[in-house]
Simulated scan of single mutants.
Amino acid sequence: MKLRILGCSGGIGEGGHTTALLLDEDILIDAGTGVGQLGLNALLKIDHVFVTHSHLDHIAFIPFLVDTAGCQRVKPLTVHALPATLQCLKQHVFNGHIWPDFSIIPNARQPYMRYQPLVVGESIMLDGRKITPLPTHHVVPSIGYQLDSGQASLVFTGDTSAHEPLWEAINRIDNLRYLIIESAFSNAKRDIALHAKHLYPAMLADGLNKLRHDAEIYITHLRQDEADVTMREIIACVTRGHPRRLLSGHIFEF
C-alpha cells in the first residue's frame, strides 16, 4: 500500500489543505480540499471514498469529484461511511439544492455515485487491501480506519477525542507500523477542544500512554495559527515515541 497525504491541515490558507489521503491510486480516505491538488487523470482513477465523518473539511470535494469525473467513468464512485454520515450527505449535500443527487444521475440503474454503509469493526477487502473502520468519538458520528496491506498496518484516526474503545482496537493490531492521530488545539484551548471533541496535547499524551505498539506517530489536523505551539507542547508532554508533524506530500509505504 502507498498512502499519499493530499491535505492534513485544520484549515485553509498559506498552502494548507483540509483532510484528504490518497491510498494507491484508487481510494480516498476523506475528501477535503486536498483533493483539489489532483489532476483530471488522477481524479478519474478514484473508485472509492472512505469518509470518517460528515464535517465539511472532510467531505468538501466529494461533490466536485463526482461532478468532474462522473460522466467519464464506467462505474459509479462508491462512497463508504457510517449510515448516519451517508444520511447527512444525502439530506444536506446531494439533495438537489446544494448539489445534484448523483446517486440517481444520469439514472438510478447507472448512477455516477453509490453509497455503501459501514459497520465499525467489519473489514472491507479491495484487491487484497483490508480496510477496517475503527471506533472514534467526535461531535458527530465518526470513525477512523485501519489500512492493512497484510505486511503492515497504518491507522488514521480522523477527528476524535479521548475514546477507550479506539485504543483497545489499535492495541489489537499486531502489525501496526504508523499511527496518524489528530491534535486540533493547543493546551491553552483545552475548553474548546473538549467542547468540539478534539484532542489537545495533554489529552493526546494520556492516550498515547495506552499504546502498546512501537509505531511511528504523526500528528494531523493542526491549525495553522498555532501548529508550532501545539507541536512543541506535544513533544514536551508525550513520554513515548517521537511524534512528528504530518505534512501534505508525505508518503507512507507499507
Rank of each mutant, 00 (worst) to 15 (best):
G150M: 07
R245P: 05
I170T: 03
L179E: 06
L126M: 10
I27A: 10
P201A: 01
A215G: 01
T136I: 04
F61L: 14
W99N: 05
N209Q: 14
H137I: 02
Y112D: 05
D191Q: 14
I59Q: 06
I219H: 00
G10P: 08
K75A: 13
I235P: 00
A42C: 08
A202D: 13
G70I: 12
M125I: 15
R172G: 13
I173A: 09
Q151G: 15
D228A: 14
A215K: 08
L208M: 03
H195C: 06
I173E: 05
G36L: 11
K75V: 01
G34P: 08
D67K: 15
G13Q: 12
H58K: 09
G7V: 07
I46C: 03
M1H: 10
L147C: 06
T220N: 09
G70W: 09
I98P: 01
I29V: 15
V238K: 02
N107R: 08
T132K: 10
I105F: 10
A69Y: 02
V140H: 05
L21R: 12
L23C: 09
I173P: 07
I5E: 00
N95P: 00
T230E: 00
K45H: 08
D191L: 15
T85K: 01
L28Q: 03
M113L: 13
D159N: 12
L246S: 05
D214M: 09
T160I: 06
T132H: 07
H17K: 14
D101T: 00
R129D: 00
V229C: 11
I12S: 07
T68Q: 10
H195G: 05
H250D: 13
F50R: 02
T52L: 08
L3H: 07
A69G: 04
G249T: 08
T33D: 10
G121E: 08
K130M: 13
G39K: 12
T136Y: 01
A81F: 03
M231R: 11
R129M: 14
L134R: 04
C8L: 05
Q151V: 05
I27Y: 11
G144D: 05
L222V: 06
I62P: 01
D148M: 03
R73E: 04
L22V: 07
V51W: 01
K90Y: 04
S186F: 02
I181A: 04
S153C: 14
P243L: 07
Q224K: 12
L208Y: 00
V49C: 13
I234M: 03
D214P: 02
A205D: 10
D159F: 09
F254H: 13
